[in-house]
């Protein structure tokens, strides 16, 4: 007996994310979806990354914000191709938004594509945009209780960047406790401590990226 089904296998966002994934894989680009609160330092970390990896890896950035192109402008100063997505109120980037922009890029000419998501510790974690890895930036001014309060984003990410460590002496941030909580939520997750002011931790972060790019290209 034949049963007519005609049902889509994946939800709309997952389907488009699968398409993005295939598109990136076909072009050998490693993609990281970088998330974090507004003001955690995502763009600053990216600026430091551009400085260090320029000339070594061919990079591009997709910026996500509700309004303005302020972040894209900052990245553009480093001579790295960047496209700004404005969600006009949307709290996260989704696969359709990323696809629309990625289709306009010369992906074959890239090693590394960084998607800087909208500042938000909640919603972006729910939406696959076709990335290889998710990453979360948490700054020490935000409180060491945040990992347990926002478990999903830490469980979903391959790397946690604990940022602004140069002002740790002035914050109530218990680094050991935060690391313990993050490890409890996501055993084995890579945790890096960084400061964009002093440059601490930027090299280990870039080394992590280099390795992921190499792994992707060898697949």
């Amino acid at each position: 007996m034949e049963i007519q089904v005609r049902k889509n296998i994946l939800g709309e966002n997952d389907r488009m994310a699968a398409e993005n994934r295939a598109m990136f894989a076909d072009n050998g680009v490693y993609v990281i979806n970088l998330m974090g609160s507004p003001g955690s330092g995502k763009t600053s970390v990216l600026e430091k990354t551009m400085e260090k990896l320029k000339g070594e890896l061919r990079m591009a950035v997709i910026e996500g914000d509700l309004f303005t192109s302020k972040d894209a402008d900052r990245i553009a100063k480093h001579d790295v191709p960047v496209i700004q997505i404005n969600t006009s109120g949307g709290c996260h980037l989704d696969a359709a938004m990323v696809q629309k922009v990625a289709r306009k890029m010369d992906l074959a000419a890239l090693d590394l594509l960084i998607v800087e998501n909208v500042g938000n510790l909640v919603c972006p974690a729910e939406f696959d945009v076709g990335e290889d890895d998710k990453g979360v930036v948490l700054s020490v001014t935000e409180g060491d209780d945040k990992p347990l309060k926002y478990p999903l984003i830490f469980k979903e990410s391959a790397v946690a960047i604990l940022n602004k460590v140069d002002i740790l002496p002035y914050c109530n941030f218990d680094m050991e406790s935060a690391r313990e909580d993050i490890s409890a939520l996501h055993p084995g997750m890579t945790i890096l401590e960084t400061s964009c002011t002093t440059g601490q931790g930027i090299e280990p972060w870039c080394e992590w990226l280099r390795q992921r790019v190499e792994e992707k290209q060898n697949r």
């Binding site: 034949e2 089904v5 005609r6 994946l10 699968a18």
Partner: peptide, 9 residues
Amino acid sequence: MQVEYLEVD
């Protein structure tokens, strides 16, 4: 990306 039909007993 869809399931079109099933052949079942």
